[in-house]
Amino acid sequence: MSEQQTFLLDNEEIPFNPGETIMQAAKAAGKYIPHLCWHPEFKPHGSCKLCTVKVNGRFGSSCTMQATAGITVENRTTELDDKRRTLLQMLFIEGNHFCPSCEKSGNCLLQATAYDLGMMSPHFDHFYPDRPVDASHPDVLLDFNRCILCSLCVQASELADKKFVFNMGGRGMRGRKIIINSESGKLGDTNFSVDDRAASICPVGVILKKRVGFAVPYGERKYDKAPASVVEVAK
């Protein structure tokens, strides 16, 4: 057996197995790299760019970059966290994120990551887009106002559920959105089920089970108890 290979993450040696990404190795070592579109069960998507790190001085997405021996990775530096905060602010102003009236509040990865990075304001002017909700399904509500285009529902439906209920389509900020796999474009006209993996994958408050809103009291929700930086490496 050859010697364990390592790389440096914020000056700490991190062991890794060949083929692992920087993100995977960091998580295994209990090190938090902020992320939104990455999920350990699925292929890295590399779109949110929250996990941007500096590898030997160059920017890269830690969820897609393979770990290699001897590289130096900067993660929680002031420069990178500043950029991450800006990216979060961009996601907040791109959609309509009204946390007080969102039932995902307290269990939302976008919100918890923003807390963790100390995002005190959206900074930019809001776009306030018009994104109608889809309540056509008997058991599930889709509120696209909160969509951050991470594509986890697309992957979950295709790979875990073998259904392909969702696709990410359109172009640019005005066009890009979740496309539903029915001619009407309505979820109610698909074979989507509340028991699908895709029904519980959304990191934000787009895919919501009906009749269970606000079930957990304030103070006891997922990220009330511990910050994202703890929760996301513990699971």
């Binding site: 907040f92 994120h97 009204f98 009236s101 005190m120 959206p122 809001h126 306030y128 887009p129 994104r131």
Partner: peptide
Amino acid sequence: VNGGLPAQRNH
């Protein structure tokens, strides 16, 4: 900070 409840008329 972000318009809050009243801003939900903005669309």
